[in-house]
Amino acid sequence: MDALTRRVLKTQEPVPTGGMEKVRRFFRFYGVQILLFLFVVYVLFALSRLGISPKRISEGFTQGKVFLSRLFPPDFITRWDDIRHDMLESLEIAVVASIIGILLSLPLGLLGARNLMPSVVTWPVRLFISLARAFNPIIIGIIFVKAVGFGPLAGLLTLSVASVGFIGKLFIEAVEEISMKQVEAVRASGASFLSVIRFGVLPQVSARFIGFGMYQFDSNLRNSTTLGIVGAGGIGGTLFAAYQRFDYRIVCAIVLLIIGLIILDEYVSERVRRVFQ
């Protein structure tokens, strides 16, 4: 409780006499301050448990300088064929997974919206979407690599599930925020349910859906560069292998290429979003 509220309340409430009453009043007045204090204590405790001290930090930076000097100049040539193939594979996984995710999320977004559907429909749909979002893509990737074997198929499935988890939820929220007045008007014309969706709902959400789809593609592109670490296809596999062989100049080349790809993607998705405003 802040000082101002405390001061006003002190003048309004009788001073308690009983022991328990006094304790309760103390916690009510100073609860937030106590919580804040405990939080600061926990952060200091966590740092000490992790062994992070000024000495450890300065050792880390010395090691970092050596590592940085071994990164340059980047080596694009030695493994160029592998790098090219895997970069393209990452891109392909991201594109196809985004499209699958969007196609699945469209109906799920409508079925999960509580302003359009009864709870017997929205409840299972929302549960499914929550489960799809529950795990980090790396964990889903490990499961799919075991289930369908190494390679891009596992990555594709992983990112499709992740896409449904995120854009499914965003689509539902977008549909739940629409103006029901426009929907009412289309219903009043005697239009069928499908027409109500097509003319009353979709025009209100289509621009946002495209924005969310592009956003998910950005995210899928980033994730598709790490999935190779668990064997689910893409550039991550080559990157990880280069790390393990201490080929830091190749690592540097791959990292630079990923940065270039992400910048290019940011540029393209910005343009696409502007077109559909």
Binding site: S179, Q182, E184, A185, S189, G190, A191, S195, P203
Partner: peptide, 28 residues
């Protein structure tokens, strides 16, 4: 509050009045 479908054109809004008479696929 008029309840027009804001992102559709004026002509498309008028034609919403015909949806109830159209076959589902034609309407879509």
């Amino acid at each position: 509050e008029f309840n027009l479908v804001e992102r559709l054109t004026v002509l498309e809004n008028l034609l919403i009045g015909r949806l109830g008479y159209m076959k589902p696929l034609d309407a879509f």
